[in-house]
């Protein structure tokens, strides 16, 4: 459009030069057009504007009737810029994962050694690892054998492969939970809402057998049944195991699993901010110091006195 307008203006200017007469009217691009063309322009303009308006409105209406409910922001204790994760909660969350979630969900990228100094001591982590059986081998006779787990072993998976997992769960694949807070929109807020948010399907919605209704799950129909109920497990630290408490703890645990560097990262940010603010002030002073000579010099023009 600008190019067309420019052409008109330019031709007008050229004509002004060649005629040698100042004709203000030639600077306007519309004056030269006939009434019919003007009407045409108005129609095209209003069509384009209308189409844009319609597209915008339709887009907005699509957003308004999205089928998934967005989880609210919960005041997690690790929300602050320099706030660490609640490690007591991570430990409780591990208990929830081990006793509830691990029946269907793997966490195959997490090893028992990762728990050391996060939620468990080395001794406790060794005990946890020893409670599972791992297939190892081959031994001298070429046979695979079972042995108790070691710190270096990963968390055991409930199913040997994806097909087995789908077969056992009505065709739905329970996702691996290692990086789940990073892999879902809303992160730990979403997980907490999903775990505590099961409802009856609203009017007009019928579910296939083996599906459950959860308004936070995109589409609403979820293959996982409500997993957390009050007093489902007993916490080793005696915390009352309400459904909300378990959801909060397991969400914190999964947040740690997805971002094991979380606490270090925030500590490093604090260090970096302190160090760099010091270095910036030093370099600012140094720059001013070095430039002080140049900035305060005076250049004098002195004509030869004759």
């Amino acid at each position: 459009m600008a190019g067309v307008a420019g052409k008109f203006v330019k031709s007008g200017l050229l004509r002004v030069q060649s005629n040698g007469i100042i004709q203000q009217s030639h600077l306007s691009t519309l004056r030269e057009l006939s009434v019919g063309k003007k009407a045409g322009l108005v129609v095209v303009g209003s069509l384009i504007g209308g189409a844009a308006g319609l597209a915008y409105t339709l887009d907005q209406s699509v957003k308004a009737s999205g089928l998934d409910l967005h989880a609210p922001h919960f005041p997690w204790s690790h929300n602050g810029m320099f706030s660490s994760l609640d490690h007591a909660s991570i430990r409780r969350g591990y208990e929830v994962y081990k006793q509830v979630c691990s029946a269907c969900h793997s966490m195959k990228y997490l090893a028992y050694r990762n728990l050391i100094d996060v939620s468990h001591t080395e001794e406790e982590a060794k005990e946890e690892a020893a409670s599972i059986q791992v297939t190892d081998g081959p031994n001298e006779e070429g046979l695979m054998f079972q042995r108790p787990g070691k710190l270096s072993d990963r968390f055991p998976s409930p199913y040997p492969n994806e097909e087995a997992a789908r077969n056992a769960n009505n065709g739905a694949l329970p996702p691996d939970l290692t990086y789940i807070t990073a892999a879902r929109h809303g992160g730990e807020d979403y997980l907490f809402s999903l775990l505590t948010g099961y409802t009856d399907p609203p009017g007009g919605i019928t579910l296939r057998d083996g599906l459950y209704y959860n308004p936070y799950f995109p589409g609403g129909a979820i293959g996982m049944a409500q997993a957390l109920y009050n007093e489902l497990i007993e916490y080793s630290d005696g915390t009352p195991a309400t459904a909300s408490q378990m959801a909060k703890d397991v969400a914190t645990f999964l947040k740690w699993a997805a971002e094991p560097e979380h606490d270090d990262r925030k500590k490093m940010a604090l260090k970096a901010l302190m160090l760099f603010s010091f270095l910036i002030s030093v370099s600012y002073y140094w720059k001013r110091h070095k430039w002080s000579v140049l900035k305060t010099r005076k250049i004098v023009y002195k004509p030869k006195s004759e």
């Binding site: 009737s65 999205g66 089928l67 998934d68 409910l69 967005h70 989880a71 609210p72 922001h73 919960f74 005041p75 997690w76 007591a88 909660s89 809402s193 948010g197 409802t199 609203p202 009017g203 007009g204 919605i205 308004p215 609403g220 915390t239 009352p240 309400t242 909300s244 408490q245 909060k248």
Partner: peptide, 27 residues
Amino acid sequence: ETCVEEQTDFLHCVDHCLAPQLFKHLK
């Protein structure tokens, strides 16, 4: 007709009332 939208609106309202309060009652 389905009531998904109505339910979403209602739960959205409850959630935003619930979110700042709930964690005070949990450990």
